[in-house]
Simulated assay, not measured.
Amino acid sequence: MKVLAGDVGGTKTLLLVAECNAGGCRKLRQERFESDAYDGLSPMVQGFLSTAGDAAEGLDHACFGIAGPVEGNAGGQRARVTNLPWELDSTQLAATLGLARVRLINDFQAVGYGIDALPAADLIPLQEGRTVPGGPRVVIGAGTGLGEGLLIWQGGHYEVLPSEGGHTDFAPTDADQVAVFEALRRRYGRVSYERVLSGRGLVNLLEHLPRAPGEQPSAELNEAMHAGDPAAAISEFALGGRDRLAERALECFVRIYGAKAGNLALTCLATGGVFLAGGIAPKILPRLREGPFMTAFRDKGRMAGLLATLPVRVIRNPQVGLLGAALAAMKSAG
Rank of each mutant, 00 (worst) to 15 (best):
L306W: 04
G305R: 00
Q319R: 13
F293C: 06
F297I: 12
D299L: 04
N317T: 14
V320W: 01
A304Q: 14
E290N: 06
L307V: 07
L288F: 04
T309F: 01
G301M: 11
V274R: 00
A277R: 00
L307R: 01
I280R: 01
P318E: 09
L310G: 12
L266F: 06
P292F: 02
F297A: 10
V314E: 11
R302Y: 07
L276S: 01
P286V: 02
K283G: 04
L266H: 04
I284N: 03
G305K: 00
L269D: 13
A304W: 01
G291I: 08
G273R: 00
F297P: 11
G272Q: 10
T267Q: 13
A308E: 15
T295R: 02
A277E: 11
L288T: 07
G273H: 05
A325T: 11
G324Q: 09
L285T: 06
G321H: 06
I315E: 05
P286K: 00
R302K: 03
P282A: 01
R298I: 07
I284K: 01
G301P: 12
C268V: 15
F297R: 00
R298Y: 02
R298N: 11
A326K: 06
M303F: 14
F275W: 12
L323T: 15
G273I: 04
D299N: 15
I284Y: 01
T295A: 15
A296V: 12
I284E: 06
L307P: 09
